[in-house]
Lab assay of single mutants.
Amino acid sequence: KITVTFNGEEKARRYYKKMQKHNLKVEIRVENNQWVVHVE
Rank of each mutant, 00 (worst) to 15 (best):
N33E: 09
V4R: 11
K21A: 12
W35K: 00
A12P: 02
R29L: 11
K1R: 14
N7Y: 10
K25P: 04
K17E: 15
V26Y: 00
V30Q: 15
M19N: 04
E9A: 07
H38F: 11
N33T: 04
H38M: 14
K11S: 15
E10L: 10
R29A: 13
V4I: 12
N32K: 07
E9P: 07
E10Y: 08
N33Y: 04
Q34H: 10
A12E: 02
Q20M: 13
N23Q: 08
V4Y: 08
E40W: 15
T5A: 10
Q20V: 12
T5C: 15
L24D: 03
N23F: 14
V26L: 04
K18F: 15
E9Q: 06
K25T: 08
K25G: 04
R13Y: 10
V37K: 00
T5M: 11
A12R: 02
N23I: 05
K18I: 12
Q34L: 13
K18A: 14
K17L: 12
H38D: 14
E27Q: 09
R13H: 06
Q20A: 09
G8F: 10
Q34S: 08
K17W: 08
E9N: 03
W35M: 02
R14L: 12
K17S: 08
N33I: 04
Y16M: 14
K11Y: 12
E31G: 04
I2G: 04
R13W: 10
R13N: 06
G8Y: 12
N33L: 05
E9W: 12
A12Y: 09
I2R: 13
E10W: 09
R13T: 05
K18S: 12
R29P: 00
E27R: 05
R13P: 04
E40N: 10
V37D: 00
K21C: 13
H22T: 09
Y15E: 02
V26P: 04
V39M: 05
W35T: 01
E10R: 09
E31N: 05
R14P: 01
K25Q: 10
V39C: 07
K1S: 14
V39G: 01
I28L: 10
L24K: 08
Y15K: 02
W35C: 03
Q34P: 00
E10H: 09
K18Q: 14
Y16S: 06
K25A: 07
V4Q: 04
V39Y: 05
V26T: 05
K21I: 08
T5W: 10
T3N: 04
V39H: 03
T5L: 09
N33P: 01
M19T: 02
G8A: 14
I2S: 06
E9F: 13
K18C: 15
R13S: 02
N23T: 04
N32Q: 06
K17N: 13
E31A: 06
K1A: 12
V30H: 13
I2F: 15
I28A: 01
N7K: 10
K25E: 07
V39I: 12
K21Q: 13
M19E: 02
I28C: 07
K21N: 10
H22R: 14
K21V: 07
G8R: 12
T3F: 06
K18H: 15
E31T: 07
Q34K: 14
N23Y: 12
I2A: 05
V39D: 00
V39P: 00
H38E: 15
K25R: 10
W35P: 00
V4T: 04
T3Q: 06
F6C: 09
N23S: 07
K18W: 15
N32D: 09
N23G: 15
V4L: 10
K25F: 07
W35Y: 04
K21D: 12
R14T: 07
G8S: 15
Q20K: 14
T5I: 15
R29Q: 08
W35G: 00
V26S: 03
E9I: 08
N23R: 08
N23M: 06
A12W: 05
E10I: 08
T5N: 05
E27I: 12
M19Y: 04
E27C: 07
V4A: 06
H22E: 08
H38L: 15
E40P: 05
E9C: 12
V36S: 03
V37L: 02
V36E: 04
G8L: 13
F6M: 02
R14A: 14
E9V: 06
Q34M: 13
N33G: 15
V26R: 00
Y16D: 02
N32G: 14
K17F: 06
F6P: 01
V30F: 15
K11H: 14
E27F: 06
Q34T: 09
Q20H: 05
R14G: 04
M19I: 05
Y15I: 02
L24Y: 12
N23E: 05
R13G: 02
W35A: 01
K11N: 13
V37Y: 00
V4W: 03
K1D: 09
Q34R: 11
T5F: 12
K11I: 11
T5K: 13
E10A: 13
E31C: 10
L24M: 10
R14N: 10
A12V: 03
K21E: 14
N33W: 03
R29Y: 14
K1T: 13
R14I: 12
W35L: 03
F6I: 03
N32I: 05
I2V: 08
V36D: 01
V39Q: 02
V26M: 03
E40C: 10
F6T: 01
E10V: 11
E27V: 09
I2D: 03
I28H: 00
N7L: 10
T3P: 02
E40K: 07
V26H: 00
Q34W: 06
Y15M: 03
E9L: 10
K11Q: 15
K1N: 11
F6V: 01
V36N: 02
K25L: 09
V4P: 01
M19C: 11
V30N: 12
V39R: 01
K17C: 15
T5V: 14
I28F: 02
V39T: 03
T5G: 04
K21R: 12
K17D: 15
Q34I: 13
T3M: 07
R29K: 12
K11A: 15
V39A: 03
E27P: 00
N33Q: 08
Y16G: 06
I2M: 10
E9M: 11
V36F: 06
V4S: 03
K25N: 09
N33V: 03
Y15G: 02
E9D: 02
R29I: 10
H38R: 12
H38Y: 15
V30I: 13
E10Q: 10
N32F: 06
E9T: 02
M19G: 03
V36K: 03
G8T: 15
K1V: 13
F6D: 01
Q34N: 08
K11E: 15
W35R: 00
H38G: 05
V26G: 02
E27H: 08
N7W: 11
N7I: 08
Y15N: 01
A12C: 08
H22P: 03
K17Y: 08
V4H: 08
Q20T: 06
Y16P: 03
R13E: 05
I2E: 05
V30S: 07
E40F: 14
E40T: 13
T3Y: 06
K11M: 14
K11P: 14
F6H: 01
L24C: 14
I28V: 03
I28P: 00
H22S: 09
F6E: 01
R14Q: 13
A12Q: 03
H38V: 15
R29S: 11
V36Q: 04
Y16C: 15
E31I: 14
K1W: 15
V37A: 01
T3V: 11
K1G: 15
T5Q: 06
E10F: 09
M19R: 01
N32A: 07
R14E: 15
E40S: 13
N23P: 02
I2P: 02
H22V: 07
Y15C: 05
N33S: 06
E27K: 06
E40L: 13
E31Y: 05
E40R: 08
H38T: 15
N7Q: 10
R29D: 06
R14D: 15
E9R: 05
V36T: 06
F6Y: 02
Y15W: 06
L24P: 04
K21F: 11
L24H: 11
R29G: 09
Y16H: 04
N33F: 07
F6A: 01
N32Y: 04
I2K: 09
N23V: 04
M19F: 03
Y15F: 15
W35E: 00
M19D: 02
E27N: 06
M19A: 06
K11F: 11
F6L: 01
V37F: 01
N7R: 08
Y15T: 02
N7V: 09
N7M: 09
